[in-house]
Each structure stands twice: as C-alpha cells, then as structure tokens.
Design a protein around this nucleic acid. Sequence first.
RNA 1: GCGCCUGUAGCUCAGUGGAUAGAGCAACGGCCUCCGAAGCCGUGUGUCGGACGUUCGAUUCGUCUCAGGCGCACCA
Length: 550
Amino acid sequence: MVLEAVRTLQTQGMLPPNVSLEPELERPAQVAHGDFSTNIAMQLAKAAGKPPRVIAQALVQMLQAEAGLMESVEAAGPGFVNIKIKTADMMIEVDAIRQAQRQYGASEAGRGRKLLLEFVSANPTGPLNVVSARAAAVGDALANILQSQGVQVSREYYINDAGKQAHLLGQSMYATLKRKEDPDYPFPEGGYEKDYVAATATASADAGGAALREMNEGDAIIHHKEYGVQEMVKRHQKSLEEYGVKFDRWFYEHILHDKDKVQAVVDMLREKGHIYEKDEAVWFASTKFGDDKDRVLKKSDGGWAYMAADIAYHVDKFQRGYTELVDLWGPDHHGYIARMQAAMQALGYKPEQFIVHIVQQVNLLEDGKPVMMSKRGAGKLLEMDDLLADVGRDVARFFFLMRSTDSHLDFDLDLARQHSEDNPVYYVQYAHARICSILKKAAAEGVVLTSTMQSLGDQFRPEPEELALVRQLTAYPEIVEVCARTLEPHGLAFYLRDLATVFHRFYTVCRVVDASQPGRTQARLAIADAVRSILRNGLGLLGISAPEAM
RNA sequence: GCGCCUGUAGCUCAGUGGAUAGAGCAACGGCCUCCGAAGCCGUGUGUCGGACGUUCGAUUCGUCUCAGGCGCACCA
C-alpha cells in the first residue's frame, strides 16, 4: 500500500533527475522515526545535484498532499523520509491476523519451486550426536518456513551404507565377537569400539543363526554390516521421531550402486570432457570449476570414491524433478563444498541450484566448562538422545535455533536445564500460556469477543504499549520471508522472544478484561488473541510447542 | 602453506549500506488487596580485532593484517 505512494513519489521525484532508483522502504529501529522510512532522497542527491534534505522536503510536501492512510510524513536526519501510519489502520491488521489464523505470514511467493532439503545424513555407524541434533532442528524449521512461503519442500536423509565406514562397522562387529574366543584376533584400525557395537554384534549373531556360522569371514562381515547399518538407521529414526523431525525419504547410497547410477554420472562427466585417467585412477577435473585440486572418482583399486556416489546422488535429486537442492552439512565437510559445487556446475547446473550451508560445531558447557565429546575416542560420548533426555526437545530446538547456523554454538546446559525466567524458551511459551489464561478468564466471566478493530475504529485509543505490540505483530510476515530467503531460521527465534517481551510489557500496563470498559476489553482481547496466534504460528514453524498452560 | 567459519558490552550473541550499534545472562535497586511474578520497571558498559579502500554514508562491501576454531586423502 505504501509502496504505491512511493511509486508516485518516484515519478514526482523525476522533476530533478531522470534516473530511476529502486526506492528502499524499511522499518526504522526507533519508534520516533515512524513506521516506515525511505532513503530515496539520499540516493537521488547525487544525480539531482541537490542536498538530500532539500529533496526530502520536496517529497514530503507532495506526499502530504495525498495523505491517504498516512498519519504523518516528515523529513529527518540526513535526508530520510519518515512515514507514520494512522493508528486505526495499523490496528486493523489485528483483524487480519485473527482472521487468517495459521495462514497469517504464509505466502504464495514460492509457488512452483521444488526444493529438496537434505540434512543430518549421519553415518550409520553410531548414535546421533549433538551436531546432528542441531542440524535436525535447523533443517526441520527451514523446511517449515519454506513451505509456509509456498515452496514445495522434501526432507531427505542420506545413508552412507556403501562406503568404507559402514564396512568398518561390520568389521568391528565381527572382530568384537571373534575376540571373545580369541583375544588375539586383530581389531580393525580406526574401528568402532563402543558398547553399542558389542550389543549390536551379539544381536546380529543371533539373527544370523546357523547360516552365519557357516559363512566365510568376508560374507560374515557383510552380514554384520547390513545388520548393523539397519540397527543404526532404526536408532536414528527413533531419535529423530522423538525430536519431532519427520523425513520424507531415507535414501540409501547402495541404491545408486545397484542401479549403476555412479557409473552413469561419471560417463556424463566424461562426455563433457571433464574426466581423465592418471595413475590407474579416474579423475574429475574439478579445478576447471574453481576447486583447488582435481578429485579422484574411481580409486586405483577399482572402488568408487565417496564423492562419485555423492555426485550421482545429487544428480538423482535433480532427475527426480527438484530444481533446487539445499544441503546442511556438518563442520567437518566444509572443505568438500567447492568440489561438489564444481561437479554440479560441470554437469550444467547453476550455482544457485545447489546450496550448502554448514551447521557449525556445538560446544556443550557445564559449569562454564566444555563437556568432552568425541566420536570415536575414549571421551564421554555425547549423544543427541542424552541431550533430549536432559533438557527436552523444545529447549534443545530453541537453543539451536537462536544462533545463526554458520556460527559455532556454545550450549549452556545449566541455563537450558533451568525452568525459569532465564530460559528463553519458557519466556516465549509463558507469554502464550498467559494469553490462553486470559482468554479463559474472559470466557469464565462471560465476555465474548465479538468486535473487530475495524468496528471499534477510532473509539479505541491505544496505549503506547499496545501500539508497540501491534507494530511488532505486523512485522511477522516479513520476518518469515527473510528467514526463507536467507535459509536462516534464527531470526524467527529472536523475533518471537522480542514479541514475548513486548507482550509482557503490554500485559503489565494494560488490564485486558475490565468489566467497566467493554470496548477497551474487546480491543485488548483481540490484540491478545492475535499475539497468541502469531506465537503459535512462529513456534510451530520452529517445531516448538505452544502450551496453553505451564 | 592453502581454504572455510568466527572476532560487536564482563559472558553468550543479534544487527537485509543508513539516523544515538542492540538483546539475553551476570550485578545492584524497586513492583504482587488486581487477568499467571516462569512477569515488569530502573541503574551502565563499547577503539564493532586492526589498517587501508569503495560510498553522500561502513559493524555491514573489497583488499591486507592479527587472533581463535575447523578442514585440507585414491576416508566417508
């Protein structure tokens, strides 16, 4: 709506210059600067050859002529034009929020996009760790956010069941059993030695029965590998399910090999002239696409390198009809990005069709000191399940979503365990529960919310706290849009905390249910209901519950 | 040595090229006869790691540099 005004503003602004600039409209950080402001005058200053303040003044005069829904418009600072919306018009947005319910903040802007989001994808050789928990929280929230913008999103989990690590798991299981009878039997180098390996190995032996005992070593290891991988995948699925993350598809690497997809993709690269042989290995000339060295796809021993299958996997995603691929990878994979992007470009895909975000490492802190964790060493193994059992899924998710994905994250366990005001999750959830409580109280007193802000019109004179609250509410759609565009959900977590703050302030100052002031009660109930709706929507996108009572 | 991430208040971190750089925690002091005190209000702190550049304007963009972390396999 305001954009139209700025457009006409632009044509009028043509008086001095004949260049047209994209007017930027933004929401100022400070209330004193109005609801919207534009820096157009400063951008035009050079072309117009006039000081920005002079241009701003001219624009203000023209805008005032067609006041419309603007309360005021004024020039300020070095040349900003600040616009204030009429409060009644601002309040009407409350009606829109209440009417749209879950749809508020949703958009159709992403319609037609088919995006595949791959995340977690941990090796099926052990339990999920806390980085996986972080990736799961981020990926799930991201998928929700993108879906709310109309993007068709699939959540996918890739299982490396065909490589060396999976094989090593099988070997470890075999060796663990073997060593019970023969303590001198060699344990594979870098093998998995945790308790769960022994337990899984025993179960696998039982499942294999007599047939297993007849097998030669190689076949027995494969039996254990397949059993072990299945077992680990089941555990991953269970952990993620308890976390509330549902994947649309669990994709096994071995399918690619079974269907010769790996060979096919190497052939595709070869046709395009990006493949050569050297030292009995097959190489991909990734340096042609910005990588710092060429990469081996087929090893001199005849086996496929991990990357070959991974390229095939990503091509498979495109072949399934997805036009955008987004991957969340762990911190140990960031050196891998350049070569995969090189591969996708070599195959003719555009850089923006394949985006990788790194989910950075997590440091768990207890008493201000880091909790030891290590994947294979003797240190205390910190599993995702342990974390969830400790702090709960809402807390875990919110803590993960409060940081930008690319930053290392210090997870303060002591704070996360607190069920108090200090814990930001409860702070937000409390606001929601509080509103539900107010609405219940109103119902108990026989107060029914029948009015709209539209119908109340100018009768309702909002307090500053109410204005601030409604202003914060109206920012919601834009927040979600930015999160979707940047593929970073943390802005939404911050927004919700800020909304809770503004609501709590409103609550202390403004009594909602007041029999002596029915009109005001109607307005405040409507505002509270709108806040409740947005808290629920926002928490929902983050995968966090919005309890009605705590 | 090369690459990626991060340097913003005592701590943990926000900050889509704009106005006086923000929040939470921690510290101290207030506020419940009244819809949930898991709440609110007040008190203050910054060479935005440093240098140079682009710009009307840089915490934001570029180059260099310093510090911390993580990667640099015919492992996955």
